[in-house]
């Protein structure tokens, strides 16, 4: 079965993440996703792109890029986020503990945790020297 695919490349800068979110949100809306599903895609794209810029590229973003590929499939929307940083699988991160006392909280790690909660399927692959992080949101 065929699918619709749309792509966007952004410079790896924090102030460009919103354009990636808007792009994915637009594709999700066109695909007939619910408002909640669009929001979940939007937030997940922000979290993953932020992690790439902060931890993958370490803000050395002069000529770095992030590619976003959206595929409208029968189940819903697949979002593939691709970067050129060192190989890193976010799914291997330990989840932060929601029951941790305040003073033991480091503050980080929640972004990927929210992505795990909001998206229906996640997959990481290192292909042609690039990180490929795939998130799928099913139609409600």
């Amino acid at each position: 079965m065929g699918f619709i695919e749309k792509k966007l490349r952004i410079p790896a800068k924090l102030d460009r993440i919103e354009s990636a979110c808007e792009f994915v949100g637009g594709v999700a809306r066109e695909a007939g996703m619910s408002d909640d599903a669009v929001y979940h895609c939007y937030l997940s794209v922000e979290e993953i792109c932020t992690n790439i810029i902060e931890h993958g590229y370490h803000y050395h973003n002069g000529d770095k890029v992030i590619d976003i590929v959206c595929r409208v499939v029968s189940a819903g929307l697949q979002i593939i986020i691709i970067d050129d940083a060192a190989p890193f699988n976010p799914l291997r991160l330990d989840d932060p503990d929601p029951s941790a006392p305040l003073m033991e909280r480091e503050g980080g790690g929640w972004g990927v945790f929210f992505v795990k909660k909001y998206m229906d399927r996640l997959d990481y692959r290192f292909i042609n020297n690039r990180n490929h992080f795939m998130m799928q949101k099913n139609k409600a």
């Binding site: 932020t50 305040l102 909280r105 503050g107 929640w110 972004g111």
Partner: peptide, 13 residues
């Protein structure tokens, strides 16, 4: 997003 959450946790501490 989690960026806002992080700021609130830091300020609360």
């Amino acid at each position: 997003s989690s960026a806002g959450l992080r700021e609130i946790v830091s300020a609360l501490k």
